[in-house]
Design a protein around this nucleic acid. Structure first.
Lengths: 239, 239
DNA sequence: AGCCCCCTCGCGCTTTTTGGGGAGTGGAAA
DNA sequence: TTTCCACTCCCCAAAAAGCGCGAGGGGGCT
C-alpha cells in the first residue's frame, strides 16, 4: 500500500470522461495508484435508488442491494449524520444487524479497514466515497493521514462528475417566480398560514391567494405544499 | 495577488483553534497569504439563521442582514443549486434586485471578482466559502484555476470547524422520522393529497393523519407545509 | 399603442385539511 | 416486565385551502 498518485492526471482523466465505463476505469486506476483493495463511489438517493461505482465484486453489490443493507450499513448511517471523512473504526458497529452486516461484507471480500467521505449536493443529494483495505490499524492510520486531503478532493470531483449524469436537471426549467410569489412561498415554507402571510406582506388574503395560485401554476404544482416543496428543491426559495 | 500559501500550516492552525476569534484570525491570514481582498465563510441555517465570518466590513455584513440580501444575492441563490465551485461571472446578475445588490455591495468594498464554493453538511446545512477580489478577468481566471483545489479543501475544513461550533446540533437533534412518516412526507411533498397518500400507502386516511401530525411534532412545524419544508431542507426527504 | 406581466382587491361556494378527543396491536429497549 | 415507540383504526366540528366569477392600475417591451 503506497500513495504514489499523480492527482492532477487522474482528476483530468475523470474530467474528460463522459461515460460510466470511463468513471469505472478511473476508479480502477485510482485503486491501483493508491494500492488499496477497493475504492467505491456510492450514490444514495433517499427514494431508495442507489447507484454504485467501484471495485467491489458484483455479487457483493447485488447482495447489498437485495438485502437492503443500505438501511443497516453503519458506514452509510454514520456518514449521513456527519460532515467530515470518517474512519470505519470510529463508527458504531455495536448493533446486532451491523455486526452481521460486517461479517457478511468480509465474507464477500471487503477489507477490515475503511475510510469514507460523505458528499452532499443540491436537493439533498448524498453520496459516499470510500477507500477500503485489509491491513492493521497502524498502517491504516498512516495511510489515511497521508492521503485524506487528496481523497477529499477526489471525492469532490467524483460527485461533480456524477451530478453531470443526473438526468432531469436540464430539461425541467421553470419560469422564475415573481418577487411577491417568492415572498409568499417563503413565508408559507416558514410555516405561516395564509392569513399570517397576508398580514405579514400587508396585502389582502385574496391577493395572496392569487400569488400562491400563480406560483403553483408556474411550478406545475398540485397544491400549496407541492409548490413549496418544488420551490425549495429548485432553490427558488431558501428557508 | 499571489498564491504563496502553506496550506498545511494554515489548516493545522484552523484545526487547533477553538474560538471564533481564532477562526477570524485564520481567515485574515488566509487572505493575506492568497493576496486577495476578501475571504468569507458564510453559514446559512435551515431555519434562516445566518452566521458569517470573514473580512467584509461590519457595515456591509449588518447591511446585508438588515436588507435580507440573502434572498437576493445571486451568489447564494446560484450556489444553492450547484455543487461545484462557481465563478461569480457565471451567475445570473440580470435581475433588477440582483444588480441593485451588486452596486450596493461594491459601494461597501466588495470586489468585482468572486469565487464561491457551496458546502453542504448534515440536516440540510448549507454554507458558502467565498474569495473576493478586485482585478481584471484574465488575472482572476489565472488565480482561480491555480487555487481552486486548495480553496475547495480549505472550504471543507472551514465547514468542519464551523460544525463544531454549532450549538444546537447536539441539543436539538430533531428525532429522525420513522419510515412511515418519511413515506407520508415524501408523498405530500410530491403533491399528493392526503387521500392519495393514504391510498398509495394502503392505510386509512386517519392513520396517515397520525403520521403527519407526528412528523409535524418532531419537526417542530406549525402545519403540513411547514413540516414538508423542514423535512426537505434538512435532507430528511428528497423529492 | 397594444400586449403581457405584476400587483392589488372583492364575494361566495365546495372540498380538504386540521385539531380535539380515544383505542388497540406488536416489537424493541430498559 | 414494563415502558416506550411505531403502526393501525375511528368520529366530529372548525379552520384552511381551493375554485369560480369578477375588477382596476402600473410598468416594461415591441
Amino acid at each position: 500500500m503506497q500513495a504514489n498518485v499523480n492527482l492532477d492526471q487522474i482528476l483530468e482523466e475523470l474530467d474528460a470522461t463522459g461515460t460510466l465505463e470511463g468513471i469505472q476505469g478511473v476508479i480502477v486506476k485510482l485503486r491501483n495508484a493508491f494500492g488499496v483493495d477497493h475504492i467505491i463511489y456510492h450514490w444514495v438517493d433517499s427514494a431508495g435508488e442507489q447507484y454504485g461505482c467501484g471495485t467491489y465484486s458484483d455479487e457483493w453489490r447485488d447482495h447489498y442491494i437485495a438485502q437492503s443493507y443500505i438501511r443497516v450499513d453503519p458506514v452509510v448511517i454514520g456518514c449521513f449524520q456527519r460532515f467530515h471523512p470518517v474512519d470505519w473504526k470510529r463508527l458504531d458497529w455495536s448493533g446486532k444487524p451491523a455486526r452481521a452486516f460486517l461479517a457478511d461484507a468480509m465474507k464477500h471480500g471487503v477489507g477490515n479497514q475503511g475510510f469514507s467521505i460523505p458528499i452532499r449536493g443540491p436537493n439533498g443529494q448524498f453520496a459516499l466515497f470510500t477507500v477500503n483495505h485489509t491491513c492493521d490499524d497502524a498502517e491504516w492510520a498512516r495511510f489515511s493521514e497521508l492521503n485524506s486531503r487528496e481523497l477529499i478532493l477526489i471525492a469532490h470531483y467524483f460527485n461533480r462528475k456524477a451530478l453531470e449524469f443526473e438526468p432531469e436537471r436540464k430539461g425541467e426549467q421553470s419560469r422564475a417566480l415573481s418577487p411577491r410569489e417568492i415572498d409568499a412561498m417563503t413565508l408559507l415554507a416558514m410555516g405561516y398560514s395564509r392569513a399570517q402571510v397576508a398580514d405579514t406582506l400587508a396585502i389582502s388574503e385574496h391577493t395572496l391567494r392569487v400569488y400562491i395560485e400563480s406560483a403553483r401554476f408556474k411550478l406545475g404544482a398540485h397544491n400549496t405544499t407541492h409548490a413549496v416543496a418544488r420551490a425549495l428543491s429548485r432553490g427558488l426559495i431558501i428557508v
